[in-house]
C-alpha cells in the first residue's frame, strides 16, 4: 500500500527528470505512466492495488452524501409537523468493526446523518449507543447502518 504510492510518486519524479519538464502537467503525465507501471507489476505486490482503495474511499463519500440528503428531509418533516409525532429512544448497536479508527469513523458518520446521534461507545469498543429521533423500527435503523456505512468502511480499511 504505502510502497505502491511511494514507487508511483518516485516514478513520476523520474519521468520529470527524464523529460526536464518540471511543471504540473509533467508531473501528472509522469504519475499516470507510473500508475500504469504499478499496475503492470501487479503480481509482485503482496497487497492489493492501492487504486482500488482510492475508489472505495470515493464510494464511501458518495454513500455518505446520499444518506445525508435522504435523512435530512425526514428530519425536516418531523420538525415542521404541528404535533411532534416522534418516539425518541436509545438503542444499542453491535458493530463488527475492530480498530479504533474504524469505530471513530462510523460514529462520526452516524452523528452526521440526521435522525441518529452516537451517545456512547462501550469500553470494549464493539457496542455503540445511538440516540434515534424516531425509533419506531430499531432493526430497520440498524440494518440501514450495517448495509451502507459498515460495508463501505470495511472496503476502505481491509
Amino acid at each position: 500500500m504505502k510502497a505502491q504510492i511511494l514507487s508511483n510518486l518516485s516514478l513520476a519524479f523520474l519521468w520529470m527528470a527524464f523529460t526536464g519538464n518540471w511543471s504540473g502537467s509533467g508531473f501528472i503525465i509522469g504519475y499516470l505512466i507510473g500508475a500504469a507501471f504499478v499496475m503492470l507489476l501487479r503480481p509482485f505486490w503482496s497487497a492489493p492495488l492501492y487504486l482500488s482503495r482510492v475508489w472505495a474511499v470515493l464510494r464511501l463519500i458518495g454513500i455518505f452524501i446520499k444518506e445525508l440528503i435522504v435523512s435530512s428531509f425526514a428530519v425536516i418533516r418531523y420538525i415542521l409537523t404541528p404535533r411532534l409525532a416522534i418516539q425518541p429512544g436509545i438503542f444499542a448497536y453491535h458493530t463488527e468493526l475492530k480498530s479504533d479508527w474504524e469505530v471513530t469513523l462510523l460514529s462520526c458518520l452516524i452523528c452526521l446523518t440526521p435522525g441518529t446521534l452516537t451517545l456512547e461507545v462501550s469500553e470494549d469498543g464493539d457496542t455503540l449507543y445511538i440516540h434515534a429521533m424516531n425509533i419506531e423500527d430499531v432493526s430497520l435503523h440498524a440494518e440501514q447502518i450495517r448495509n451502507s456505512f459498515e460495508k463501505a468502511i470495511k472496503e476502505v480499511t481491509r
Binding site: S107, C111, L112, L119, S122, Y129, I135, V138
Partner: peptide, 30 residues
C-alpha cells in the same frame, strides 16, 4: 459530529433525563 457526540455524552453522564415520551433506553440498562 464530535461536538454533538460530546455534548450528548456529557449530558447523559451527568443525569439529564430523556423526554418522557421516549420509548427505550438500552444505555441506562448497560
Amino acid at each position: 459530529p464530535v461536538a454533538g457526540h460530546l455534548n450528548g455524552r456529557a449530558a447523559y453522564r451527568s443525569g439529564v433525563p430523556l423526554w418522557e415520551k421516549s420509548v427505550q433506553d438500552d444505555l441506562r440498562r448497560d
